[in-house]
């Protein structure tokens, strides 16, 4: 039963990502932004890059997904200091946020309790795999 639910959740997450991608049918640029550093400045930087891309190309002309894994996953913690900006980018500009499940599992083990994620973060099986898949689909990888 647990396995069945896990598969269902995974399918739901994948479906969610697919639906998100379809949210921008007129996008001329597709960008995947990687954040995997522990440096807090990188958190600000990756969000700035996303904002600047939206500003430059326009909300509907650029499709952006931020993939967080490793120490970079802290960006997508529920109480991250940048949660207001994440909410703005997700709800107003259609930016998607993906969180690496491997990292979530490892960090939860270190933390001793489940990591609480931002409501806009969508867990993906592995951050690097997600990036490779997006690149294969034609996305440009940028690691600020």
């Amino acid at each position: 039963m647990k396995r069945l639910m896990g598969v269902a959740l995974l399918l739901l997450a994948m479906w969610g990502q697919a639906v998100h991608a379809e949210d921008k049918p007129f996008a001329e640029k597709r960008v995947v932004l990687q954040i995997s550093d522990s440096d807090p400045f990188k958190q600000t930087l990756v969000l700035n890059v996303a904002s600047n891309l939206i500003k430059h190309y326009g909300r509907d002309k650029v499709d952006i997904e931020i993939v967080a894994f490793g120490p970079g996953l802290r960006l997508l913690f529920k109480e991250n200091a940048n949660k207001g900006r994440i909410k703005g980018l997700a709800e107003n500009s259609g930016v998607r946020f993906s969180a690496c499940k491997n990292t979530i599992r490892n960090m939860s083990k270190k933390l001793g309790e489940p990591v609480q994620l931002n409501g806009h973060a969508v867990p993906v099986s592995a951050g690097v795999v997600r990036i490779l898949d997006l690149v294969a689909e034609g996305y440009t990888l940028v690691k600020p």
């Binding site: 807090p40 960006l75 913690f77 109480e79 200091a81 940048n82």
Partner: peptide
Amino acid sequence: LGTSVQAANWLALQGTEPDNAAER
């Protein structure tokens, strides 16, 4: 509460760090 507090507020600037966005 529970939100990040970094401002010209000396209690916050000296006594807190940005949530999940501070260096070790």
